[in-house]
Design a protein around this nucleic acid. Structure first.
Lengths: 145, 145
DNA sequence: CTCAGTGCAAACGATTTGCAGGGCC
DNA sequence: GGCCCTGCAAATCGTTTGCACTGAG
């Protein structure tokens, strides 16, 4: 795989991004530095590079895919209110480790997990014990950003 | 909320479906019994009914949304090869229970989790110890069915 | 009469693809 | 010259919406 300027920029931008941008967000940021880059190129390269293991697609709920500059797996927290995705502290990674190798004949190859949160900025002014408790599996549909 | 024939059928079909169909799949099945039903109605009612707590949207990876006739939460297994979604045995539900109430200031409101498998039918003839081990977070993109 | 619910077609947003260059070994 | 990669525009896919219509209260 050739390291084109576009690819270099994409990795750079993705690695240095503290958040986990969508293709579109990434595209917007890249345009500042490479105005003629196209969204299709961003998509194509995100795909290629995640296939190559250079970056990771974040496979999780939400209507827009997000990407992660770090190739090594770690847990994410998603804000159910604004859709932002953040890295979770490493200690939490070990939580679901007791999975059997096989369940009802189906070969277990892994798992996905995501912690749902209301992030600090969405949580502004909300008293510590409020509603928004019964989210979990609903209310996190398509709202990104 | 009115219990229209369409809604009745949707719940019925969903409750009796062993799998967790997408809106489109459900629509195909419903057409057999109610030929003039429209896909929009299916989508609309799935939305309404999941809001009402009668059914559940499965919020998880994959490009197509799936629905679950059971209103009570439980763990799912997704086949990374064919996209099929199955219920996991209940015992597994307790696995990720040790989440703190708050992480780095973000209020924890829940989590999502999904077990990735290669289902029995996709696994036909594959010797027990094969490749397909390093999937996890890739390869489960858009292939449903 | 009103109003919730419907079917249809069109709109939509995210992603993918076809195609005509362009640059590099 | 062949090939990989790009930009652009158009296509596609899942889902949502606008609208006119219907049927029950």
């Amino acid at each position: 795989m050739v390291l084109t300027p576009q690819r270099e920029l994409i990795i750079q931008e993705l690695r240095s991004a503290r958040d986990h941008p969508t293709a579109e967000e990434l595209y917007q940021r890249l345009k500042a530095r490479l105005p003629r880059i196209s969204l299709a190129t961003v998509y194509r390269n995100l795909e290629t590079m995640s296939r190559a293991g250079l970056i990771r697609k974040i496979e999780a709920a939400g209507s827009q895919r997000r990407f992660d500059g770090s190739p090594c797996p770690h847990l994410h927290m998603r804000c159910v209110s604004c859709g932002r995705v953040m890295d979770a502290p490493l200690e939490l990674l070990e939580i679901p480790s007791g999975l059997p190798k096989e369940i009802q004949g189906h070969l277990v190859v892994g798992h996905t997990m995501e912690i749902l949160v209301i992030c600090t900025s969405c949580n502004k002014g909300v008293p510590p014990k409020s509603k928004a408790q019964e989210v979990k599996g609903d209310g996190l549909e398509g709202k990104q950003n």
